[in-house]
């Protein structure tokens, strides 16, 4: 059974935000207006954390793309009263939308604040309505949602591999963010297979994980910038 994980190279990432945009489109993530956004209700499954260093005019901006980190010891799943969020067999922290009751305990428990609450019934302009991804549900208001590592892509890839009577190959399944990255800063694959690109990268000296000291064992690794 694979254990899916991601490596994001901060040295290659230019902070263009393409991953965040691709994620929003791929997963039918609702668009929130500026007023709601000011209230902290922006919905992003892949967020772009920005960090400013120094003072104007000598400012250095760092960007950290941040999806759900799919922890091996996820604090969010322990507090869910209805098992709407759990760690599945392939290491993906599931968020089952029709099961969620919107209590938001998981949001409070997540130290990386990756989860969003759907405050409004999502609405899209007419022209976008027809562009919604049919492989992903459009979530109703009142539930918590987050990055699923584009699980629908895994299911489609598995089905296609089964039709061709073969095993899943590296690269058959990659989330929209990794696929869209113009500088190929995001790698994705099976962390348990020592020969995959992600396994190789996470063994390098530049690899680290966010808030590692918490013991959440995230499966999203970052590679330090080279100064």
């Amino acid at each position: 059974m694979p254990r899916w994980g991601m490596v994001i190279d901060l040295n290659t990432c230019t902070g263009c935000g393409e991953c965040a945009a691709a994620c929003k489109i791929e997963n039918n993530v609702a668009i929130v207006g500026p007023e709601e956004s000011d209230m902290g209700r922006t919905m992003l499954w892949m967020d772009m954390l920005t960090e400013y260093e120094g003072e104007y005019p000598n400012v250095k901006v760092r960007y950290i793309p941040r999806p759900c980190l799919h922890c091996d010891e996820p604090p969010c799943t322990r507090v869910c009263p209805v098992r709407a969020t759990y760690l599945n067999d392939e290491g993906i922290v599931a968020q089952i939308f029709p099961q969620c009751i919107g209590c938001r305990y998981c949001m409070a428990a997540c130290p990386y604040t990756v989860k969003s609450f759907n405050w409004y019934r999502p609405e899209w302009p007419d022209t976008m309505e027809s562009a919604l991804n049919p492989d992903v549900s459009a979530r109703p208001a009142g539930i918590v949602e987050k990055c699923t590592f584009c699980i629908h892509r895994l299911q489609i890839a598995k089905e296609e591999a089964a039709v061709e009577n073969r095993d899943l190959r590296e690269g058959d399944y990659i989330p929209a963010c990794a696929e869209s990255c113009p500088t190929k800063a995001i790698s994705f694959g099976d962390l348990d297979d020592p020969d995959t690109e992600v396994s190789r990268l996470r063994r390098t000296a530049r690899a680290f994980r966010l808030l590692e000291e918490l013991g959440t064992e995230p499966k999203v690794y970052y590679l330090y910038e080279v100064e």
Binding site: N88, I92, A94, I96, F97, D135, S137, Q155
Partner: peptide
């Protein structure tokens, strides 16, 4: 029987 088999 993973919920993700049908719900996503």
């Amino acid at each position: 029987s993973d919920c993700y088999a049908c719900h996503r």
